[in-house]
Amino acid sequence: MAGHSKWNNIKRRKGAQDAKRGKIFMRLAREIFMAAKEGGGDPDMNSNLRLAVDKAKSNNMPNENIDRAIKKATGDLDGVHYEEFTYEGYGPGGVAVMVKVLTDNKNRTAADVRHAFNKNDGNLGENGCVSFMFDRKGYLVIDRETTNIDEEELMLEVIEAGAEEMETGEEQFEIFTTPEAFTAVKAALEASGHTFETSEVTMFPTTYTPLEQEGVEKMLKLIDMLEDNDDVQDIYHNLDADDEILEQLS
C-alpha cells in the first residue's frame, strides 16, 4: 500500500474544506437507502447496509437521519428509483479517475460528469478503462492521540483480528483488510476498545500518476466540480502530488 498516503491526504483535504454537511448527509442517506432497498432494513442481516451505516456514523450523521433513510427504503416511497453507476476516465495528465454515482436520472448525471471531465482537461472513458488500476480494500484509521497502545501491541491485535497490513504514521495507524474481512476486523478491534477516525471499504490505486503544480491544480478543480454534484457518492483517483504543492493549493 506504499504511496497511498498522498491520495488520502488529498481526500482529507477535501473533507476538511467541505463545510456542506447537509450535502454529505444527503449522500450518505442515499447510500443507506439503496442498501436497505436492495437487502432489507436489518444491518445484522445486510452487510452492505451495515457498511453504509458505519460510514454514516463515522461522519457523525445523526441516528435519526440513519433511521429515516432505512424506513423510507423499507416503506412505500412511490416515484423514487435510484440507480448506481461507476464512470471511469482520465483527468489532467492521464490521472485515472473513477466516479461512483447514485442517481434518479442517468442521462442528466452522465452529462454532468462528462462536462466536469471535459472542462478540466480530462476525458470520460469506457467501463473498465481504469478500474484495473484499483484494489478494493477495507480501511481503518486509529488516531494515535486517542490510544495509549504502542505499535507492536496494536500490530499483534491487528494480525489476530485478521487484517492484511498496518502502516504507522506520525499521527495515525492505518489498517488494511480484504473487503470480506472488514466487518470482523473492525468488530474485533472495537471489542479491544479502539475507536476509528475512518472506517470504510474503499478503492486504492495500485499505481500513481505524478503531476506538477499546474496539473495538480486542474485535478483538484475536477475533484471539486464532481464533489459539487449531488449525484456523486465517491471519487477515486491515482494522483501523486507533492505535499508542498498540496499545501500551497489548500
Rank of each mutant, 00 (worst) to 15 (best):
N148A: 06
T195K: 14
T177D: 01
L211M: 14
P205L: 08
L222H: 13
D150H: 08
E160V: 00
G215E: 09
E200I: 10
H194F: 15
E165I: 01
E165L: 07
E160L: 06
N148G: 15
E170N: 07
E152Q: 14
Q213L: 13
T177W: 03
E145W: 08
T206S: 11
T183S: 07
I223M: 13
E200W: 00
M166R: 04
A191R: 15
I149W: 02
A161W: 02
R144C: 01
V201S: 08
F204L: 15
E214P: 01
F176Y: 13
L211Q: 12
T168L: 03
T207M: 10
L220K: 10
A188T: 05
Q213S: 11
H194G: 05
T198W: 09
T168F: 00
L189M: 05
S192P: 01
E145V: 12
P205R: 10
L189Y: 03
E174N: 07
A184K: 09
A191G: 13
N148Q: 09
T195W: 05
V158M: 02
T177S: 08
M219A: 12
F173G: 01
R144I: 06
F204T: 00
M225A: 15
P205Y: 10
L222S: 10
G193H: 06
M166W: 01
K221N: 13
L211F: 09
V158F: 02
E217T: 12
H194Y: 15
K186L: 11
E214L: 11
I142S: 05
F204A: 03
L211I: 14
T195I: 11
E165C: 01
G215V: 13
E197W: 09
M166K: 06
L222P: 08
E217Q: 15
D143V: 08
F173P: 00
P205D: 10
A181V: 04
G162A: 05
A188M: 04
E212K: 14
S199G: 14
A161G: 06
E180P: 00
K186V: 02
K221T: 12
E217I: 02
E151H: 04
T147M: 07
E152N: 13
E217C: 05
L189K: 01
T168Q: 04
E200A: 14
V185D: 08
T168V: 14
N148T: 10
P179V: 01
M203H: 02
E170W: 05
T202A: 07
Q172W: 03
A187K: 12
V158W: 03
V201P: 06
E212M: 14
P179C: 03
T195C: 07
F204Y: 04
D143I: 06
L220F: 12
F204E: 01
E160S: 11
V185K: 07
T198F: 10
V216C: 09
E180D: 09
V201W: 08
P205Q: 11
S192K: 15
M203N: 04
G162P: 00
G193S: 07
A163R: 03
S199T: 09
A188R: 13
E214C: 02
E171I: 09
G215C: 13
